[in-house]
């Protein structure tokens, strides 16, 4: 209004208070959840942080694209599309992705000390730990679901029947959710205890990949020796074998491993045990964060 006001002078208006709206606890949790998912893929971090997750994502898509390509060019039947075995087949890439990116959510906070800032904010240790875990689950889901969706949509485009494919892909999706939750629990525990990124990566790879090999070997030996019970329960040692076993026994998928559960009851029992182990892991994770706050 005044003459000075129109002269284009920059005024230092000093410190401004904030009287506006503030988000609820749920709003804060949601913000943390999605910023965590984005951080896993390198958003909000340095440019080179995006290279690895997207390179791995690209690599895990290659088989799906090739399968869909072969199907549409040569015109093979849609039986070729084996959704539920896809992530066990590319387990190496899934493990690499999880091992490399879990430290982003877990080791980084604890190592750089940001955790003390988070814990001095409204959420608190328990909600923080569980939200971090949920972020990792969502990120892994994005990683394992994308190739399945490429297969499914590509298959449909190449002439597969929607209603024939749907139950098979649904089993695979459910398996992917279970896989993401189990793998996230293992990786978050490893990453929150080994504060160095390199150690966390090596540790996660050890636990997940070597666990996979050992489990497959153990099942092989146990089933040739006739110890089928042991062979079934060995699946609890590796999320990949377990998800395969549950998919086979409950969802009528074809197995990639020597000794899948042979009855629905065993499958259910395995599933329940795996979920119980997961809850135990989450309790340990929460304890870890609670002790860091003090």
């Amino acid at each position: 209004m005044s003459a000075q006001g129109s002269a284009g002078v920059i005024h230092d208006i000093g410190y401004r208070r904030y009287a506006g709206e503030r988000t609820s606890r749920a709003g804060i949790t949601r913000a943390l959840l999605f910023s965590g998912v984005l951080a896993v893929f390198g958003f909000g971090r340095s440019g080179k942080a995006k290279v690895l997750p997207f390179a791995l994502l690209g690599m895990t898509l290659v088989p799906a694209v090739i399968q869909v390509g072969i199907m549409s060019i040569i015109g093979l039947s849609s039986d070729l599309l084996n959704y539920s075995a896809y992530n066990a087949g590319s387990s190496f890439l899934v493990v690499l992705f999880v091992a490399a990116q879990a430290p982003v959510l877990f080791s980084r906070d604890l190592r750089s000390g940001v955790i003390s800032l988070y814990l001095a904010r409204p959420l608190g240790a328990t909600a923080f730990a569980l939200t971090r875990w949920a972020s990792l689950v969502l990120a892994i889901l994005a990683f394992v679901l994308t190739p399945l969706l490429v297969l499914f949509i590509g298959g449909l485009a190449a002439g597969a029947s929607f209603w024939e494919e749907l139950p098979r892909v649904a089993v695979a999706l459910a398996g992917a959710v279970l896989l993401a939750m189990l793998v996230a629990t293992v990786a978050s525990l490893v990453a929150s205890w080994t504060l160095r990124r390199g150690l966390a990566i090596a540790g996660s790879i050890m636990v997940l990949l070597v666990g996979l090999g050992v489990t497959a070997g153990l099942q092989e030996v146990a089933s040739t020796e006739g110890a089928t019970g042991l062979a079934h329960w060995a699946a609890l040692l590796s999320p990949f074998v377990l998800v395969d076993s549950v998919q086979v026994s409950l969802g009528d998928a074809t197995s990639q491993f020597p000794a899948p559960a042979d009855s629905a009851a065993t499958g259910l029992l395995l599933l329940a045990s795996a979920l119980a182990l997961m809850l135990l892991g989450l309790a340990l994770l929460v304890r870890r964060y609670r002790s860091r706050g003090a």
Binding site: Y18, G20, E21, R22, T23, S35, R121
Partner: peptide, 11 residues
Amino acid sequence: MGRMSGLPPAP
């Protein structure tokens, strides 16, 4: 950190 303290995105 502002979001973590309960500020909406724009503020």
